[in-house]
Write a protein that binds this DNA or RNA. Sequence first.
DNA 1: GACCAGGCACATC
DNA 2: GATGTGCATGGT
Length: 221
Amino acid sequence: MVSQTLNEIYQLLFDRFGPQHWWPGDTQFEIIIGAILTQNTNWTNVEKAITNLKAADCLSPEKLYQLDITRLAELIRPAGYFNIKAKRLKSFLNWLFENYDGRLSNLESLDTVRLRDELLAIKGVGRETADSILLYAFGRPIFVVDAYTARVTVRHGLIEPGADYEQLRELFQLNLPEDVQLFNEYHALLVKVGKEFCRPKARCPGCPLEKLPHTVEIEYF
DNA sequence: GACCAGGCACATC
DNA sequence: GATGTGCATGGT
């Protein structure tokens, strides 16, 4: 039973690592900015960029909307891909101001499917970024998939190699209760175990999931 | 010095 | 629809 295995994995991870307190961020807006900045980037680099934005007093929708894009790129430089990410942050803010008066509170009344579709229409916001925003900034019951999610589930035979993003998201959403706090903690725990043990092309001694069957050889993923 | 990191858009086939 | 490439800093 898939749901049973998913529950077992969650318990093993939670028992080992405990609560992860995600998303690291003080405000709804900071969470959204972090979600864009962390694309294919280590979180410690994102923290430096966010620190710069705070020091420049630019971490609000109004300030960031008005900030010169060249200046914005300078501030977020430590997060890498700074030119493209400056554009992506601007495209989010342009959407917010042109359609919702620059107010995140105006998004709360949208249903989750509508909000997801609108986020995905923004250049620079893909599935993982949109779903991170939905779950961690808006508290919607959407399971966030990332490279770690794929690696762990493939290695333990829960899904076939090559499964796409939506298949992975359905694996969790259809086999777990629709619980925002569970989705929050589960995704964070998968990132934790991915960073510390379930790494590319590496065996994982000491991994909390070590005793579970591995149906896919490490070399393949 | 190589490899990796909490992706995405775009070109090409 | 699948695959390849550019984007870039900082830690291991």
